[in-house]
Amino acid sequence: MRKIFLTVIFAYCLIINSAFASPHENGIDDFYFGQSLEEIQAQYELTNKEYDAKDNIVNYTAKISSLDFYGMNVSQPIILGFKDNKLCKISFSAFNLTLDEGSKLYNRIKEFASVQYGKPALPLSIMTIWYTDEINLSIMYLALEEDNKSAVFVTMEENTLSEELLAIFNH
């Protein structure tokens, strides 16, 4: 009986883990950092091209209805950033949440991201940031109390921090 119970618990943990496994060390779902602009354009329509001169990144918007990030209902469109025609940044959000929904979503993402990426470098009540060798992940919770609405913003980008800065943030 104990073996059956442990087997069921183990299987449940695997199912839960796979349900929230869409983020990975080098991107999210079908998007991988370093993926070419042409490869993504072959699958998705990219619109609203904007150049960010400060970061030397070209941003596009795209409607990606199947994007899953820890069960977050992603508002459309999302933003994909390219440097030298290679994917380097993915940004998206969830809007029109109640204060309670937004707070719960923010905390759920923090919990699961901490399991996957370790202790955050910057854990605040409304913003949390992780730095790894591969990625920088930031999530932010914005509450508009007068409207009883909130939003959660997520940005994952290819890590461009120097090894010295990365060491400071990861200790």
Score class of each variant (00 low, 15 high):
residue 142 L to Y: 12
residue 120 P to E: 02
residue 10 F to C: 13
residue 89 K to L: 13
residue 141 Y to F: 10
residue 129 I to K: 14
residue 108 R to P: 00
residue 94 A to C: 10
residue 32 Y to G: 02
residue 113 A to D: 08
residue 31 F to I: 01
residue 45 E to G: 07
residue 119 K to G: 08
residue 32 Y to E: 01
residue 154 V to I: 14
residue 5 F to Q: 04
residue 144 L to I: 13
residue 7 T to V: 07
residue 67 L to M: 06
residue 66 S to P: 06
residue 70 Y to C: 11
residue 68 D to V: 03
residue 41 Q to T: 12
residue 72 M to C: 12
residue 19 A to M: 11
residue 8 V to R: 03
residue 23 P to T: 08
residue 157 E to K: 15
residue 73 N to V: 01
residue 88 C to G: 10
residue 121 A to D: 14
residue 137 L to D: 01
residue 111 E to T: 15
residue 37 L to I: 12
residue 43 Q to I: 00
residue 153 F to W: 09
residue 158 E to A: 04
residue 63 K to T: 15
residue 44 Y to G: 02
residue 59 N to K: 06
residue 21 A to D: 13
residue 5 F to V: 01
residue 169 F to Y: 15
residue 4 I to V: 06
residue 113 A to W: 04
residue 54 K to I: 10
residue 89 K to M: 11
residue 149 K to P: 13
residue 169 F to Q: 14
residue 89 K to A: 07
residue 8 V to W: 01
residue 128 T to W: 09
residue 121 A to L: 03
residue 61 T to A: 03
residue 56 N to L: 01
residue 32 Y to K: 08
residue 30 D to H: 02
residue 79 I to G: 03
residue 69 F to H: 11
residue 98 T to F: 00
residue 10 F to G: 08
residue 76 Q to R: 09
residue 94 A to G: 04
residue 69 F to K: 12
residue 51 Y to A: 07
residue 151 A to D: 14
residue 72 M to E: 09
residue 18 S to Q: 09
residue 101 E to G: 02
residue 84 D to W: 00
residue 153 F to Y: 14
residue 43 Q to P: 05
residue 167 A to D: 15
residue 147 D to W: 03
residue 161 L to E: 15
residue 140 M to D: 05
residue 114 S to A: 08
residue 57 I to R: 00
residue 148 N to Q: 14
residue 102 G to F: 00
residue 136 N to D: 11
residue 141 Y to L: 03
residue 54 K to G: 03
residue 113 A to N: 02
residue 58 V to C: 03
residue 47 T to V: 15
residue 13 C to M: 13
residue 142 L to T: 12
residue 22 S to R: 09
residue 1 M to F: 06
residue 59 N to G: 07
residue 155 T to P: 01
residue 99 L to T: 11
residue 158 E to K: 13
residue 130 W to T: 15
residue 162 S to V: 00
residue 166 L to A: 06
residue 168 I to G: 04
residue 135 I to V: 15
residue 83 K to F: 02
residue 63 K to I: 12
residue 79 I to T: 12
residue 10 F to Q: 05
residue 45 E to A: 10
residue 137 L to Y: 04
residue 170 N to G: 06
residue 111 E to A: 09
residue 8 V to I: 13
residue 78 I to E: 12
residue 108 R to A: 11
residue 46 L to M: 14
residue 165 L to R: 12
residue 118 G to K: 11
residue 55 D to C: 00
residue 65 S to H: 14
residue 92 F to C: 05
residue 71 G to H: 07
residue 46 L to R: 09
residue 8 V to N: 02
residue 108 R to K: 12
residue 83 K to N: 13
residue 85 N to F: 01
residue 113 A to Y: 05
residue 46 L to Q: 10
residue 17 N to I: 05
residue 145 E to C: 04
residue 56 N to C: 00
residue 130 W to S: 15
residue 28 I to V: 14
residue 2 R to V: 03
residue 56 N to A: 10
residue 152 V to D: 10
residue 106 Y to D: 01
residue 75 S to T: 13
residue 50 E to S: 10
residue 75 S to W: 01
residue 155 T to E: 10
residue 154 V to G: 07
residue 138 S to Y: 03
residue 97 L to Y: 00
residue 34 G to R: 07
residue 120 P to G: 10
residue 109 I to H: 07
residue 105 L to S: 06
residue 147 D to H: 03
residue 3 K to I: 14
residue 122 L to N: 06
residue 72 M to D: 07
residue 79 I to W: 08
residue 37 L to N: 13
residue 17 N to Y: 04
residue 164 E to C: 05
residue 89 K to C: 05
residue 87 L to Y: 03
residue 75 S to I: 08
